[in-house]
Simulated scan of single mutants.
Amino acid sequence: MTHSVPSTHYPRLRRALRSGVATWNSVGAQIQFHGRTVRGIWDALVHYRVEVARLTAQMSLGTGALAVIGGTIVIVGFLTLSAGSLIAVQGFSQLQQIGVEALAGFTSAFLNVRLIAPLVAGIGLAATIGAGATAQLGAMRISEEIDALEVMGIRSIAYLASTRVLGGVIVVIPLYCIAVMMAFLATRVGTTFVYGQSTGVYDHYFNTFLNPTDILWSFAQAIAMAVVIMLVHTYYGFTASGGPAGVGEAVGRAVRVSLVAAVLVTLFASLAVYGQSGSFNLSG
């Protein structure tokens, strides 16, 4: 006679299996939500244009007291300004040690476009627009406003999630323009005004190594990053639970996941665009 071993003899194994199954189901639910959100963008363009315009204005310039300082645009501008200043400080001092400080303009044209501006813009987008979207949707979820919309026959995902994804993509275009210009300006002022390098020398190497194709790829990377970040934040806000504390937890998880996603987008985009050749030649 054989006796089956009770499953209670292996509690750790059961917990591990349950955790793995729950994680797998969560990933599937998240992918399904993202797919429905992307499909709902067309409905947002056709039926919810007013809501898209309202969210775009709110995301870019802010509302209430935040609108006084310009909202997300000013925040991202200051972030990239400080990052560009660090490029000037580190780039010039390191190049000076090997006697090629004239190439400080190269560091701005190379690093700001390919790395600094996209990453800083993604971080600013996740910390401001993304976190705000998660908090708004989470508050609507716990107050049963989303359930009320569905009862009224409104496509809740298209109305709430797709409109925010579309608004984030619209906002990121001028936002990224400001980010790139502030990074360029900060590096140029730091190198020429603080360290005293000739503006002619700086501009010569900056214009020589600045590739317009890199700027276009950088914009595409910023748009892809905005889509991924907004998808992550809308999902965590839409599925928040547990009252106000649950909304705060959802915002924290969304910011954490979106920051990791922004770094991964930068990594894979850099590998895809610059991984083989790099589009960089140093001669002369």
Rank of each mutant, 00 (worst) to 15 (best):
T2S: 12
V5A: 11
P6T: 05
H9C: 07
H9V: 13
H9P: 00
P11C: 09
P11R: 06
R14E: 14
A16W: 09
L17G: 10
R18C: 09
R18Q: 15
S26N: 11
V27M: 12
Q30D: 04
F33A: 13
R36P: 01
T37P: 04
T37N: 05
V38C: 04
V38N: 03
R39Q: 14
I41G: 06
W42G: 07
W42S: 07
D43R: 14
A44Y: 02
A44P: 02
L45H: 02
H47D: 09
Y48Q: 04
R49K: 14
V52M: 08
R54H: 08
Q58N: 10
S60T: 14
A67Y: 03
I69E: 06
G70S: 07
G70C: 04
G71W: 00
G71Y: 03
V74S: 12
V74F: 11
I75Q: 06
V76N: 06
G77K: 02
F78I: 15
L81Q: 01
A83W: 02
A83N: 04
L86K: 08
I87M: 13
A88K: 02
V89Q: 12
I98K: 10
A104H: 06
A104E: 07
G105K: 05
F110H: 11
N112Y: 00
L119D: 00
V120G: 01
I123T: 05
G124E: 04
I129H: 00
G130C: 07
A131V: 10
A131C: 11
A135H: 03
Q136W: 04
Q136H: 14
L137I: 13
G138A: 09
M140S: 04
I142F: 10
I142D: 04
E144K: 06
A148R: 11
L149H: 01
V151W: 00
G153W: 03
R155W: 01
S156D: 02
A161G: 01
A161S: 14
T163N: 01
R164Q: 10
G168C: 12
I178F: 14
I178L: 15
M182L: 15
R188Y: 15
R188Q: 13
R188G: 10
G190Q: 05
F193N: 10
G196A: 07
G196K: 09
Q197D: 03
T199R: 08
H204S: 15
Y205R: 08
N207R: 12
N207T: 13
T208P: 02
L210E: 01
T213D: 09
T213G: 13
T213W: 14
D214T: 02
L216H: 05
Q221I: 07
Q221F: 06
Q221D: 01
M225S: 15
V227S: 04
M230I: 04
M230H: 06
M230N: 07
V232A: 11
V232K: 01
T234N: 04
T234G: 00
T239L: 01
S241D: 12
G242H: 09
G242Q: 09
A245Y: 05
A245I: 12
G248K: 06
V251I: 15
R256E: 12
V257M: 10
S258F: 09
L259H: 04
A261G: 12
L264Q: 05
L267P: 01
A269H: 08
A269V: 11
Y274H: 08
G275T: 08
G275W: 09
S277E: 07
S277H: 12
S279E: 07
S279A: 13
N281D: 07
G284T: 08
G284R: 11
